[in-house]
Amino acid sequence: MKRFIIFIFCILFVIDLGDTITVKKTLVYVNYESGKLDDGIPSLEATAANASDAAFMVSPGRNGMYAIGHKVTLGDPGYFSNNHYRSESATPGMPEGRFVRGDNRRYEVSLLLKDWQEWKPGMSESGDIIFQGKLGGGGNPAYYIAAKRNSLMFRMPNNNEQLLLLKDFRQFKNQWFDFRIDVAWRDSPTGFYIIYMRIPSIEKDYKLIKEYKNYHTYLPDNPESKIGYSKWGLYRADQSLEKGDIPTRIIYHDDICILDIDIS
Score class of each variant (00 low, 15 high):
residue 168 D to T: 10
residue 169 F to V: 11
residue 140 N to W: 11
residue 143 Y to I: 11
residue 218 Y to C: 10
residue 195 I to W: 03
residue 189 P to G: 05
residue 147 A to S: 14
residue 177 F to A: 05
residue 153 M to D: 09
residue 200 P to N: 09
residue 199 I to K: 05
residue 144 Y to Q: 11
residue 139 G to W: 04
residue 224 E to Q: 14
residue 171 Q to C: 07
residue 208 L to D: 00
residue 189 P to K: 00
residue 218 Y to A: 12
residue 164 L to W: 02
residue 201 S to H: 03
residue 214 N to Q: 12
residue 226 K to T: 15
residue 137 G to R: 08
residue 220 P to H: 05
residue 135 L to I: 15
residue 192 F to E: 11
residue 162 Q to P: 01
residue 140 N to K: 13
residue 143 Y to S: 09
residue 194 I to Q: 10
residue 180 R to H: 02
residue 183 V to Q: 01
residue 169 F to D: 02
residue 171 Q to M: 11
residue 172 F to P: 06
residue 218 Y to I: 13
residue 187 D to Y: 05
residue 205 D to N: 11
residue 200 P to K: 02
residue 148 K to S: 14
residue 206 Y to S: 06
residue 192 F to W: 02
residue 139 G to P: 10
residue 149 R to G: 08
residue 188 S to K: 07
residue 152 L to H: 00
residue 201 S to Q: 09
residue 165 L to S: 01
residue 209 I to W: 00
residue 173 K to F: 04
residue 143 Y to R: 01
residue 190 T to G: 08
residue 160 N to R: 14
residue 204 K to E: 12
residue 211 E to K: 14
residue 198 R to E: 04
residue 167 K to N: 15
residue 203 E to H: 05
residue 212 Y to I: 15
residue 192 F to C: 13
residue 142 A to G: 15
residue 152 L to C: 02
residue 156 M to E: 13
residue 137 G to I: 08
residue 202 I to V: 06
residue 191 G to H: 01
residue 179 F to A: 12
residue 226 K to H: 08
residue 148 K to L: 10
residue 221 D to W: 01
residue 169 F to N: 05
residue 183 V to K: 00
residue 166 L to S: 07
residue 191 G to Q: 01
residue 210 K to I: 08
residue 175 Q to N: 13
residue 194 I to K: 10
residue 169 F to T: 11
residue 226 K to M: 14
residue 181 I to V: 14
residue 169 F to Y: 11
residue 202 I to G: 03
residue 227 I to Q: 11
residue 154 F to S: 01
residue 188 S to I: 03
residue 145 I to E: 02
residue 140 N to C: 14
residue 219 L to E: 10
residue 190 T to N: 11
residue 207 K to V: 15
residue 222 N to I: 04
residue 175 Q to I: 06
residue 174 N to E: 04
residue 136 G to C: 08
residue 220 P to Y: 05
residue 141 P to T: 05
residue 213 K to E: 15
residue 219 L to F: 14
residue 182 D to S: 02
residue 216 H to W: 15
residue 134 K to A: 13
residue 141 P to M: 03
residue 148 K to V: 13
residue 184 A to Y: 03
residue 223 P to F: 06
residue 180 R to I: 06
residue 150 N to L: 01
residue 195 I to H: 00
residue 194 I to L: 06
residue 203 E to M: 13
residue 211 E to Q: 15
residue 170 R to K: 09
residue 218 Y to R: 04
residue 183 V to S: 04
residue 181 I to K: 02
residue 156 M to G: 07
residue 173 K to W: 00
residue 152 L to Y: 00
residue 137 G to M: 09
residue 154 F to T: 00
residue 226 K to D: 14
residue 180 R to T: 12
residue 188 S to Q: 08
residue 198 R to G: 08
residue 186 R to L: 11
residue 209 I to S: 09
residue 203 E to Y: 02
residue 222 N to E: 07
residue 178 D to Y: 06
residue 142 A to S: 15
residue 147 A to W: 04
residue 169 F to G: 06
residue 197 M to T: 06
residue 193 Y to T: 03
residue 162 Q to R: 07
residue 139 G to V: 10
residue 151 S to L: 00
residue 193 Y to V: 05
residue 150 N to H: 01
residue 141 P to F: 04
residue 202 I to C: 03
residue 185 W to V: 14
residue 227 I to W: 07
residue 154 F to E: 01
residue 146 A to W: 00
residue 141 P to L: 08
residue 183 V to A: 07
residue 141 P to R: 00
residue 149 R to V: 12
